[in-house]
């Protein structure tokens, strides 16, 4: 069974890593098509995409939408989680359910609903509309993470602060936020990742200014090209850098 295990591990790792390896290798292809045979290495595709205005604009747009929508989602989630942990409100189970509900609905449907509503009230497709959609999909996640992080210990610390005369905003800012900092960071980074990579909502809700996944999508329509490989490899590189940084800083303490 030992040999079998290693054979299986080798086979499945090949399957899992194959597309990424092929993607990265053929981003250096010195030729027009990113398929075998490999004709030699060049960096010209990277130069091409880094000089592509539309692509770089899309990258900046994605970055902005991801940062701002994640900030809003984390803030709303944080306030709601503190509120529901603060007092036994009537219907609090219902409120929790409502806040979590968007998690169970596919992005396509959320995007479609927003598109129709925005059409009816005359809001044009834009980055703002996309950002609103991204808050909708990330708020449940942020709320769930932060609500789960507030345990009995945290509750009594907050209560103590109130008993000592802190105002509500002081309790949130000086006690709750620092205490929940790791969870706040986790919620923010997860939201950022989801927004950064989200396609269908951005596809439905943007028109002229688009996000990176939508721009990549339109690159695909012109067929296979090493330029698309180069974009994909860059996105991959940036994400891996972020993950490795997190692994070495934020999560290292937790694992020991």
């Amino acid at each position: 069974m030992r040999t079998l295990s290693w054979v299986y591990l080798g086979a499945i790792f090949t399957f899992i890593l194959l597309p990424v390896v092929v993607l990265v290798i053929f981003s250096f292809q010195d030729g027009r098509l990113p398929v075998p045979p490999f004709k030699g290495a060049t960096l010209k595709w990277y130069a091409k995409i880094l000089g592509d205005r539309d692509l770089m604009d899309a990258l900046v747009n994605s970055m902005m939408v991801a940062i701002l929508s994640s900030l809003v989602a984390v803030t709303l989630g944080f306030l709601a989680a503190s509120g529901l942990a603060r007092a036994a409100l009537p219907g609090s189970a219902l409120m929790r359910g409502l806040l979590i509900a968007p998690m169970t609905v596919s992005y396509l449907i959320i995007g479609l609903g927003l598109l129709q509503m925005f059409n009816q009230v005359g809001i044009r497709p834009s980055l703002l509309a996309t950002g609103i959609g991204h808050v909708v999909i990330n708020l449940p996640l942020c709320f769930a993470i932060l609500y789960a992080a507030i345990g009995e210990h945290q509750k009594s610390a907050l209560q103590a602060a109130r008993d000592l005369g802190a105002r509500e905003w002081q309790v949130l800012w000086h006690v709750a936020a620092p205490m929940l900092a790791p969870s706040l960071a986790a919620a923010f980074f997860l939201s950022f990742t989801f927004s950064w990579d989200e396609f269908i909502i951005a596809f439905l809700l943007t028109r002229f200014d688009v996000t990176l996944p939508v721009e990549i999508w339109s690159m695909l329509r012109s067929g296979l090209s090493p330029a698309t490989n180069a974009v994909g490899s860059l996105v991959f590189l940036v994400s891996v850098a972020v993950v490795v940084t997190l692994e070495l800083t934020l999560f290292r303490k937790g694992s020991k």
Binding site: L76, L79, A80, G83, L99, Q116, L139, F143
Partner: peptide
């Protein structure tokens, strides 16, 4: 106070999730 804190998130969900649905 609890209700005040929950309100923004609830409103967001109602306006941009329940209403479109």
């Amino acid at each position: 106070q609890g209700a005040t804190l929950v309100a923004p998130a609830l409103l967001w969900t109602l306006i941009f999730f329940v209403l479109p649905f």
